[in-house]
Write a protein that binds this DNA or RNA. Structure first.
Lengths: 202, 202
DNA sequence: AATATATCTTGACATTGTCAAGAAAAAGCC
DNA sequence: GGCTTTTTCTTGACAATGTCAAGATATATT
């Protein structure tokens, strides 16, 4: 941690932190590994030892992203009423909220070719996010999507609509939604998220 | 056109063609301007005169993408029954189809920061694509989304679900859908696209 | 304390986007 | 037709980037 020390102490964590800052400031397309090193106050080749190539750093960052992604949804759900539909809406709003507040990271997680899709940690984190969605649907529909193909269609439909909203919002499309106050926007988003459910009969 | 001619004849078109090939082969994150020039058989600085910086070439390519995007949907609609719901499903399937067969181009159009969003041609092309969606919805619901906010919510919901499906499919997520035959997949996609409509009562 | 290992730096290389200057072809002009 | 002007493309250069190899320095091991 001291200024002149050859050894940093916890450079790995510092690099991840710096990488996230670099990502959110420069965007994913102008992201630079040397820029990350500069932010962390180390030489340009320092990241290599901890993460190998740039891919490695971005893979680790994407995994962290998925963890925080789930946490954001859960925090949102804790503040919401405990009935299944309110919980579903809260999870969806958390999904969109995360995307809007971590645009470049969201893009890294869902739209980038950089992260290594064979990485065990990343796969575990993204699978956890998917499983959470499946369980939330199951909670409403009572049947397990993994064993009921109709329920799995519900999962895909719900995922698609929430993801589509998130992706179009951060792309700057959907201006009518972007131009309103956050609370108004979330009212409409909730409506869109819930109307989609075939299990609306509940 | 001849091998040794200093002047190409129609380099601008050739560069756009080469850029699309480069894009689909290398992906948007490994896209190289010098690679495009090499494909067109021209020096590395030749593109500059026609498109300025790399941004310019990608902006022009994105605009062309939006035009073909609309055409793909229209071709699909021509083959479908003329009732509004079948037309809506056809447009949605065209949307997804375009994304899957032009993955990198689709990413350039919707997820990239490169294209200049102030470019008149690009804005005209992307607005045309949006207007087409609005009209298709209007065709079903009978009310103009531009004057009926409830209808505009229908537009956003429909757009989101179709876009979400497209984006998640080309991201390699939604494996259960990717692993099936195209016809089976499209059956489910149609169902998802249509179920979303609040105007389902029709 | 001596050696071994892990961690970081330095220097180099090929590749990339961009710019400036110049060459070649086409067009304009008499 | 010859001459100039303009457009189109090439060449050469520059800084920035990712990656690699070799070396320097701190920590761990014995």
């Amino acid at each position: 941690m001291s200024k002149k020390s050859y050894h940093h102490g916890d450079l790995r964590a510092a690099l991840l932190q710096a990488a996230e800052t670099e990502l959110s400031e420069k965007g994913i397309e102008a992201f630079s590994l040397r820029g990350v090193a500069k932010r962390a106050g180390v030489s340009h080749a320092a990241p290599a030892h901890h993460f190998g190539e740039a891919k490695g750093l971005l893979t680790a960052l994407a995994a962290i992203g998925f963890q925080r992604f789930v946490e954001t949804q859960q925090r949102r759900q804790q503040k919401a009423p405990s009935n299944p539909k309110a919980q579903m809406a809260a999870a969806g709003l958390g999904y969109v909220d995360f995307a809007m507040e971590n645009q470049a990271l969201f893009r890294l997680m869902f739209s980038s070719q950089q992260p290594d899709k064979n990485d065990a940690t990343l796969n575990a984190a993204s699978s956890a996010a998917f499983d959470k969605l499946v369980k939330d649907i199951q909670h409403i529909g009572k049947s397990d999507p993994y064993h009921d193909s109709a329920a799995m269609v519900d999962v895909m439909a719900t995922w698609a609509i929430v993801h589509g909203l998130a992706d179009l919002l951060i792309a700057g499309r959907m201006k009518s939604l972007l131009n309103m106050e956050k609370t108004d926007r979330e009212t409409i988003l909730s409506e869109i998220i819930l109307r989609n459910c075939s299990f609306n009969s509940n």
